[in-house]
Amino acid sequence: MEEKSVDDVYSWSEEGVVKVNKQDDPSPAPVKKRVKSRMKLQQIGLPLAAGIVMLLLWEWQVLHQIFGLQTYQLPIPSTIVEALVENAPLLLSYTGYTMTEAVLGMLIGSSLGFVVALMATAWPRWGRGGLLVIASLNAVPIVALAPIMNLWFGSGIGSRIAIVTVITLAAMAINAHKGMKMVDPLALDLMHAYAAKKTEVFRYLRIMNSLPYVFTALKINTTASMIGAIVGEFFFSSKGLGYLLSNSIKVAKMPLGWSCIVVAAIAGVVFYLLVEWLERRMLKWHVSHRA
């Protein structure tokens, strides 16, 4: 009883660090290799299989029976795909519109946030207080911003860009500031030894040091910017995925609404992977990217 439980402890700890091959392991190396490739297959296959099973249960309306839903409430996947194909040109152009808002807003917001971080680091006494105020922006619900930005910038593309700008600014300012402040004290001493000016300390040390944090913020911001753009379109827009989504629900075109979600999800993942790819290219030197 006791014996067994202890063995269980073993199997949780990192593979191969605590547990070293026992005597009764004749040829550990090839076994391990085989295990590895099987693990890989399992890693991809298992979630994929689960996803397919779910889709099939959904398609055959098993889910509907379990939860007592009708197809007009929860459309089945094949009708969603149908709607997707039928409205492909519209969805594509709306995706372009929404992505424009998201990307532009994120670029503006992230740049502003970075500038804020620079200033807050350069003048720490007042900068920190200002940062605290900006950090509280992070907690403001996007939906409260939407009507205000609509009042300020009208119902066009500008108001969504403004929404995205505001919500991406805070995350960037906070993260970049952290990265600029968390420099190795010795590296700072080295700069002092070179009699570096304040601007040079930023140029040679602080900005580089902040880059990993900047990318963390950018990755947070990709998702946030998509949400901001889509939610912003829910109410005051006549274009874009968010508009089409909320409008389709209102007029009970559920498959079309779901197809918007599908397209938005794909766009979101692509956007995210793009930023991640950029990170990998630009941060080759960083610990987290060493092979």
Binding site: Q42, P47, I230, V231, S246, I249, A264
Partner: peptide, 29 residues
């Protein structure tokens, strides 16, 4: 391990997609 392999990819993917977009749909259902 099994549970992790099953759910982890979906958990990560859910962080990349605009979840709030689901609000109207949930309300619709």
């Amino acid at each position: 391990k099994w549970m992790e392999q099953l759910t982890f990819p979906y958990a990560v993917a859910s962080q990349m997609i605009p979840i709030l977009g689901l609000a109207p749909i949930v309300y619709g259902i």
